[in-house]
C-alpha cells in the first residue's frame, strides 16, 4: 500500500498527492492487481445549476409582469384621457426596472460590468424621464455628472477593497465607505454649485469631508499602527494600552 512519507498515513493506489499535506506520493503498482472502484463520482456542482434554474424562473415571471404592466399602461393611455406625461414616466420606469432586475439577478457575471450596466441603465432612465416633455433640461447638467461621479467612486471603493480584502475587512470597509461618502458629497456640492451659480464655494460638504476623512484616517492608521513614539505618548497620557 502506498504511504505519504510526511504524514505516515496509508492512501489508495493511484493517488498522486497526499490528501492531507499534498506531498507527492510515489507511484507504487498494485501487487494484487485489484480493480479500482472509484468511491466518489466526479462531483458536479449542484449550486450553480440550481440557482440558475431558480433565477430563470424569477426573471421569467417578472418579465411577464413587466410586459403586462407596459401593456396596461399603453391601454390606459389609449382608452382614458390620462395625462400623457404620467403614462410615459411609468412606462420608462417599468422598462428600466426590467433592466435593473436583469442585472441584480446576476446574469452579468463580472461585478465591474454589472456596476457599469447599472450606471448605463440609470443614464438612459434619467435621459428618458428628462426627455418626456420633448426637451432635455437637466440630464447633461445634473444627472450625467452625478452618475459618472458615483460610478467613479464605486470603482475606487471596489479597487481599494479588493486590494485589502484579505487583510482586515472590519477596518477597511468602514474606512473606504467614509472616504467614498466624503468624496461623493464634495463632488455633489461642486456640481450643484457650478450649475446654480457657475462658481464653486464648498460649505456643508467640507464639514462632511473633514469629519469622515478624519475617522477613516484614524481607523486605517490604527490598523497600520502608529509610530512607537506616538503610541508611547498616548499610553502615557491616557493610561491605556490600545495597541
Amino acid at each position: 500500500m502506498p504511504y505519504c512519507p510526511k504524514c505516515g498515513v496509508e492512501v489508495d493506489y493511484k493517488i498522486t498527492n497526499c490528501p492531507l499535506c499534498t506531498f507527492p506520493i510515489p507511484d507504487i503498482p498494485d501487487e494484487n492487481n485489484n480493480i479500482k472502484v472509484s468511491k466518489f463520482p466526479r462531483p458536479e456542482n449542484k449550486y450553480y445549476e440550481t440557482i440558475l434554474k431558480i433565477k430563470n424562473q424569477i426573471f421569467f415571471t417578472l418579465s411577464i409582469l413587466i410586459f403586462c404592466a407596459v401593456l396596461i399602461l399603453i391601454t390606459i393611455n389609449s382608452i382614458i384621457d390620462a395625462h400623457p406625461l404620467a403614462i410615459n414616466y411609468s412606462i420608462i420606469s417599468v422598462v428600466a426596472a426590467w433592466f435593473y432586475i436583469f442585472i441584480f439577478l446576476g446574469y452579468i457575471s463580472s461585478l465591474y460590468y454589472s456596476i457599469l450596466g447599472i450606471g448605463i441603465v440609470t443614464m438612459f432612465l434619467t435621459l428618458g424621464i428628462d426627455y418626456v416633455d420633448g426637451r432635455i433640461n437637466w440630464f447633461f447638467s445634473y444627472a450625467l455628472p452625478v452618475i459618472i461621479l458615483a460610478l467613479a467612486i464605486i470603482y475606487l471603493f471596489l479597487y481599494l477593497y479588493n486590494r485589502s480584502k484579505f487583510l482586515n475587512k472590519f477596518i477597511f470597509i468602514p474606512s473606504y465607505l467614509f472616504i467614498g461618502i466624503s468624496l461623493l458629497s464634495v463632488g455633489l456640492e461642486c456640481i450643484l454649485d457650478y450649475q446654480a451659480k457657475k462658481s464653486i464655494s464648498l460649505s456643508w460638504s467640507l464639514i462632511v469631508f473633514i469629519v469622515l476623512i478624519s475617522i477613516a484616517v484614524l481607523l486605517i492608521s490604527l490598523y497600520y499602527k502608529l509610530p512607537d513614539i506616538i503610541k508611547e505618548k498616548i499610553k502615557r497620557k491616557l493610561h491605556i494600552s490600545l495597541f
Binding site: 505516515g8 498515513v9 492512501v11 490528501p19 492531507l20
Partner: peptide, 23 residues
C-alpha cells in the same frame, strides 16, 4: 486541510495505522 493533517498525524504518532480517503 491543516486541522485534518494535524489530527491524523497525531494518531500516527501514537503508532496507530490510518488510511486516508477523500472526495
Amino acid at each position: 486541510t491543516t486541522i485534518e493533517k494535524i489530527f491524523f498525524r497525531k494518531i500516527r504518532k501514537m503508532n496507530i495505522p490510518v488510511k486516508i480517503e477523500t472526495n
